[in-house]
């Protein structure tokens, strides 16, 4: 793990307004995450962990405060600038995999590469490598509906890493899987962190999943709190 911060959040405020009511999610949240770290963010429902993940991924913007990625603020980028930033720097892994049901595994994994200038042959090679990494090279032609939940999540991981982003953001990546499959997925994330140096930020409810991270942050009522990891 590097000593360099990949993320630095300063005085982050997020509020939602509904009618006359204003709901505060964070008030002056501060956080630094080192490059190459594997961070789990835990907390009860409504604690703001997914909102935080969305802001780290540039899919939601703070009410005020700064979100620095690699020393550059991303909180003021336009929607299209953020889309480009995500394409080059972030891989997303969702709880329900979010694969395109009409595309086979190969085509699903290829999607982020369509945003690059790579030629079709190079894209195919990269997709094969990514599918090999998650152990699904022989399932390249399978449609998502023909794969188990664990296999679909592995395809989603291959899609997240195929363009070689620095950062992986995982939203409850094992929330829809049984224990054994969940552990296999978490071991894969651990491998991507240790062997490939990916910075991983994972939101989870599950203390067993958080165990795989190097650092666990507990978010409660918009603030980080110290807490023992209890299994």
């Amino acid at each position: 793990m590097s000593e360099k911060n990949i993320f630095k959040l300063t005085n982050l405020v997020k509020r939602f307004t509904k009618g006359k009511e204003t709901l505060s999610i964070f008030e002056d949240l501060n956080l630094s995450i080192k490059e190459g770290d594997f961070v789990a963010i835990m907390g009860p429902s409504g604690s703001g962990k997914t909102t935080l993940l969305n802001m780290l991924g540039g899919v939601d913007q703070p009410t005020s405060g700064e979100v620095e990625f690699d020393g550059k603020g991303i909180e003021k980028l336009s929607e299209n600038q953020l889309a480009k930033w995500r394409a080059s720097n972030v891989g997303f892994i969702f709880q329900f995999y979010n694969l395109m049901p009409m595309l086979n595994a190969h085509r699903n994994v290829e999607l982020p590469l369509l945003l690059t200038q790579l030629k079709s042959k190079e894209r195919s090679q990269r997709v094969e490598t990514a599918l090999e990494l998650v152990g699904l090279k022989d399932r390249a032609k399978h449609m998502p509906g023909e794969l188990s939940g664990g296999q679909q999540q592995r395809v989603a991981i291959a899609r997240a890493v195929v363009s070689d982003p620095k950062l992986l953001l995982c939203d409850e990546p094992t929330g829809d899987l049984d224990r054994q499959t969940a552990d296999e997925i978490l071991e894969m994330l651990q491998l991507l962190n240790r062997e490939f140096g990916k910075t991983i930020i994972m939101v989870t409810h599950d203390p067993s999943a958080a165990k795989f991270a190097n650092r666990v942050l507990h978010l409660d009522k918009g603030k980080f709190v110290e807490k023992e990891l209890s299994l």
């Binding site: 929607e79 299209n80 889309a83 394409a87 979010n98 945003l115 899609r159």
Partner: peptide, 14 residues
């Protein structure tokens, strides 16, 4: 809607 949003998350343009 979920597919469109997923593609946007990955970095596809609007």
């Amino acid at each position: 809607s979920r597919e469109i949003a997923t593609l946007r998350t990955i970095g596809f343009s609007n």
